[in-house]
Amino acid sequence: MKLSHFEAALLFALVSSVVLGVVTKKTDRERVRYGLYCFGSFMAALFGIAWVMHFLHG
């Protein structure tokens, strides 16, 4: 099985966000919100770092 860097990072963000959401916070609503927040943060970092590398490499 071969995944691109983006696909691997997307799946990593998914499983990590699920567990981080489950093990933190007190209510289910807060857990869902925190899981989504973590996933969004992973994606923001992924795209942000990708653009930084794009400009650094010219």
Binding site: V15, V18, V22
Partner: peptide
């Protein structure tokens, strides 16, 4: 519910690792 989510997330991560050898 939380146990099932943890099981599935860890299983998915481990299975992906194995499938990518």
């Amino acid at each position: 519910g939380r146990g099932a989510l943890i099981f599935l997330a860890v299983l998915l991560s481990f299975a992906l690792g194995l499938m990518m050898r």
